[in-house]
């Protein structure tokens, strides 16, 4: 039984949600529409075309940037997951003070402004005579991915029951065997979400890539940045649309895949 006042409130609330959604999605939908627009003018609809998509796939700079982006995202997420998971396990058995110090230092790249992290890495690479290129981007991405992995694994590790691990050892399992049979399955969700978080962070990064990349190497973000300065080409809209649809598909699979608890989200 709803009173009139509650009904009005409900309408106002829905209106507010609607306005914010329009604000959030208007730019994205506009770009999608423009990617099919045969007129080069942004304010006019000249008919439907797939020309910009064809142009995009023909462009060597876009395909190589796409390859670099995926390579760096995958490699940096993998390496950060391995180092970060090991670190979480090691830190879990440390005493309080060293653990707190390491946590604070490790969290710096997550809390610091990206421009400062980017500059500091650039200065570091140059000081140690490492030529800026694709590898330096990779190293930079691992650096800012690590705290996210540690942060995802740590809570799961704290929830694990220490006695099951000890029981496995008592029954004759080696520490490594006991770890992979007993502890690892428990922390796996944390490891996976850390990996996914790292992967998406790396895909999305621009600022740190901007400072750590060598000339001639581009990821999608840096390519877009340099293109924007020269004037936006419609093939960029095509690229944006593809990226958005891909990310949307990945996120829907990750969030609403069968097996995950269904929520009462129909509203």
């Amino acid at each position: 039984m709803k009173t009139t006042k509650e009904k009005i409130l409900h309408i106002v609330e829905n209106g507010y949600l609607g306005v914010i959604l329009v604000f959030l999605y208007a730019p994205i939908l506009t770009m999608m529409a423009l990617s099919f627009n045969s007129s080069k003018s942004r304010a006019q609809w000249g008919g439907f075309t797939l020309e910009w998509y064809a142009q995009m796939f023909d462009s060597a700079s876009i395909t190589s940037a796409l390859y670099n982006t995926l390579y760096i995202a995958l490699m940096s997420a993998l390496i950060a997951t391995v180092i970060g998971t090991a670190a979480a396990i090691g830190m879990n058995s440390m005493k309080r003070t060293p653990r707190a110090v390491l946590t604070s230092l490790g969290n710096i790249p997550m809390l610091n402004a990206e421009i400062v992290t980017g500059i500091s890495l650039m200065l570091g690479f140059i000081a140690f005579g490492i030529t800026l290129g694709r590898t330096t981007i990779l190293l930079g991405h691992i650096t800012f991915n690590l705290p996210y992995v540690v942060l995802s694994v740590m809570p799961k590790l704290k929830q694990t029951n220490k006695s099951t691990y000890e029981a496995a050892m008592d029954l004759g399992a080696s520490p490594v065997y006991a770890f992979f049979k007993v502890v690892f399955p428990d922390i796996l969700p944390g490891v996976l979400s850390g990996f996914l978080l790292a992967f998406t962070m790396s895909l999305d990064d621009f600022i740190i890539t901007h400072f750590t990349k060598g000339s001639g190497v581009n990821t999608l973000s840096t390519l877009i940045y340099s293109e924007v300065r020269r004037g936006i080409k419609p093939s960029m809209y095509a690229l944006s649309t593809i990226i958005f649809v891909t990310v949307l598909a990945l996120l829907i699979v990750a969030n609403f895949a069968p097996g995950k608890k269904k929520s009462e989200a129909a509203a």
Partner: peptide, 9 residues
């Protein structure tokens, strides 16, 4: 969504 693309939009 890519940060640059959002701003570009």
């Amino acid at each position: 969504m890519n940060f640059l693309l959002r701003t570009l939009a």
